[in-house]
């Protein structure tokens, strides 16, 4: 029988939490091995970054949703960390198979990669709980209603809110989306759709704002390669 919106939202949350039950909020043995295989072990930086971003996220979540919700923010962050580690491990396994390498030192010591991956994980958590919803702005989403988050918030925490919290450029966030979806086949249709909407928003608008790293990349491509003939506009 078709589910009510609240039942569907509750099941989505239950599924997410169930999928993350076996995931720890610390790196797994496999992930530790990948860290140790690096020329420079990134583990301490990873843990330190999570500590810093965890505090920032909880504070901003509390400011946005309500001061009583800082603890809720902490819970969301913890789930986000579990998903972050889970997807990281899956990505590395996939890359190991694809590239036949075990030393991912450059990637795992790239702060932007870790911040992007974490931001994507947090966006998935917030979308599941209805806090990040393009349709309703998060306030009237069945999950948000069912969770009792009925207090009016001062700030909408819908995407791209998370980018500002973790100080991440939209173009860098964009880079992880497809690999994230590929690495976690348990993501449900609604969440994949949400990430796809984020992706489109970035490509159509946010990545083209002043200060985006996209412009530097385009400049490097233009200067690095041979000058190409510009095609005249077709009539």
């Amino acid at each position: 029988p078709p589910q009510t919106p609240i039942r569907a939202a509750m099941n989505s949350i239950k599924q997410l939490r169930g999928d993350l039950t076996s995931s720890g909020d610390q790196p797994s043995t496999n992930l530790d091995t990948y860290f140790k295989n690096c020329t420079v072990d990134p583990k301490q930086d990873v843990l330190k970054r999570l500590e810093t971003l965890g505090q920032a996220f909880s504070q901003r979540f509390g400011q946005a949703v309500g001061p009583r919700c800082i603890v809720l923010g902490r819970q969301r962050f913890t789930l986000g960390v579990k998903l972050y580690y889970k997807v990281m491990e899956a990505m590395l396994k996939s890359e190991e198979k694809r590239l036949s390498v075990q030393n991912f030192s450059k990637l795992l010591n790239d702060s932007t990669f870790h911040t992007s991956l974490l931001a994507c994980a947090l966006e998935v958590i917030m979308a599941t709980y209805g806090e990040s919803s393009f349709k309703t702005g998060g306030y009237n989403h069945p999950a948000a209603t069912a969770a009792g988050g009925g207090d009016a918030a001062d700030t909408n925490v819908c995407f791209p809110w998370i980018l500002d919290v973790v100080n991440l450029a939209a173009f860098d966030f964009y880079k992880v989306i497809e690999s994230f979806i590929k690495a976690d086949p348990t993501l449900n249709k609604e969440i994949v759709k949400h990430l796809e909407t984020c992706e489109n928003l970035i490509m159509e608008r946010i990545a083209w704002r002043t200060g985006s790293p996209l412009f530097e990349l385009l400049k490097q491509e233009h200067e690095g390669g041979a000058a190409e003939q510009v095609e005249p506009p077709a009539s």
Binding site: M91, S94, E95, R98, L99, F104, K106, L107, D110, T112, F113, K175, V176, E178, S179, I181, K182, L187, N188, K189, V192, K193, L195, E196
Partner: peptide, 21 residues
Amino acid sequence: SHDYHFGLEDHEGISELFDCD
């Protein structure tokens, strides 16, 4: 199941996207 379009080729992955190839 979803209908997300995966655009990356077999020789493209997260390592290339973060300039780590």
